[in-house]
Design a protein around this nucleic acid. Sequence first.
DNA 1: AGCTAAACGCAAGTTATTTGCTTTACGAAA
DNA 2: TTTCGTAAAGCAAATAACTTGCGTTTAGCT
Lengths: 188, 188
Amino acid sequence: MTPLTGSRPGGRSARIQQAVHEATKELLLTTSRDDLSVPMIATLAGVNPTTVYRRWGDLAALLSDVAADRFRETEPPVETGSLAGDLSLWAEHFLEEMGSGPGRSYVADVLAGDSSGENTGICAKYAMDAITQILARFPNETAPPVSEIIDHVAAPILYRILFTKERPASGYGDRLVARLLGGGIRRF
Amino acid sequence: MTPLTGSRPGGRSARIQQAVHEATKELLLTTSRDDLSVPMIATLAGVNPTTVYRRWGDLAALLSDVAADRFRETEPPVETGSLAGDLSLWAEHFLEEMGSGPGRSYVADVLAGDSSGENTGICAKYAMDAITQILARFPNETAPPVSEIIDHVAAPILYRILFTKERPASGYGDRLVARLLGGGIRRF
DNA sequence: AGCTAAACGCAAGTTATTTGCTTTACGAAA
DNA sequence: TTTCGTAAAGCAAATAACTTGCGTTTAGCT
């Protein structure tokens, strides 16, 4: 529902949505999630709480939308000149971005308030697009398919961020990429 | 907080916690998450809502506890006679269990209401224990370390369950295990 | 320009959540 | 076994969040 999906996307709707998103982001800087409420956000956005409830349903859904939006506005992966380099650097960025305190919260928010699966889809697409872009830079190299890179680089990183307390040390992304591309004989 | 963590674990506390958990599970069978409320659960459990709020804080935290509990009570992995067989079968079970409609909700619940990271830790431990048990059955075989099996079997399965709409087809777990154990030369 | 309907605001009603205080019932010590 | 201290539960009143019905605004269409 986030960008302009309603049947009347222009003008007011868009303005209000933006105001609410802005207000939410601003409050998240200073307020813990437990202290956050819809009326609070609505007031800061200069909007009636009813409007927020009718458009988003509840706070979790709004937070999910806002969090998904953050992933939408992302730079294309940095170029290093080699496939392995691009993937490693991207993996480390991904790890930094998702594993930082806020990043972790955003991922959790996306999952928590997403009944339709739309916002989690956006996250998945974010990773997929980045990897696709990288692969497109090296059309002559033999590389694993996108799905495999997601399974063996992005998935482990997210698993650790979501399910274990310590965020993975930097270097973990590099190792995952090396392992994937190393390919050949491996003694475990 | 789930099992008997309070400073007064015996007797009343334990009874109430169990009653609340039972009531929650029962209501989840017939009621959608959006229609569920703390007062509703408290009434069915024969407990004052205040008690629930004071012990769990909010509905999300309670649901997280209840969901984590489901993973606690799990059978040891089935034995097939071979390492590859045990791992494959476990992966497929894991996929079935987590990828089913309810399973997916439980995972989401665990993540959504877990501010301390305790309940997600339980989920992670569940996977780790199962894999550790399997490896212990084949002490003379060369096998990847537990962490690597988690990264390349459990993590991709969970990634797909959480972030993509279609649940992975059965056979996906088998393929992940085969890929991991296949080891040798691979052409992608 | 005028029409239509989606989306917002307002106010009243309902339900959920918090808080201060009292009561109950473990658990330990006599 | 009785008594005592305390953590946890109950109760009731106050607050805050959420819902709903209805009138008003405004974007999109002809």
